[in-house]
């Protein structure tokens, strides 16, 4: 067997039920995508957490850098008019 460090890392996304989007659940090692899907099934859906799984090679993800946090996110901080806080959310809309 190769050592686990030889296996690429995969990010796992689980859709918990129909109508919701896939949510990041965690990561795992696997030799290829098919095995990653099976490992994800064993690691993240054992307790009926999901109805659908995505696995994505971690290397394929481009992430924002913590160094850019200020220029990326700070400018939105003082613009409250961008938030939909002036509306009443109708009852029965749970996932807005």
């Amino acid at each position: 067997m190769s050592s686990p460090t030889d296996w690429p890392l995969w990010e796992v996304f689980v859709r918990s039920r129909r109508g919701l989007s896939h949510t990041h659940a965690g990561s795992l090692h696997a030799p290829d995508a098919e095995m990653a899907l099976r490992n994800a099934r064993d690691l993240y859906t054992r307790r009926s957490e999901g109805v659908s799984l995505w696995v994505v090679p971690s290397a394929a993800i481009t992430a924002s850098s913590p160094d850019e946090k200020d220029s990326f996110f700070e400018p939105a901080g003082d613009k409250p008019y961008r938030h939909p806080t002036f509306y009443e959310i109708p009852e029965g809309v749970k996932h807005l």
Partner: peptide, 12 residues
Amino acid sequence: APVLEEEVALAN
């Protein structure tokens, strides 16, 4: 088991 993921699979 050779790797943690496989250990969980076999235990399952």
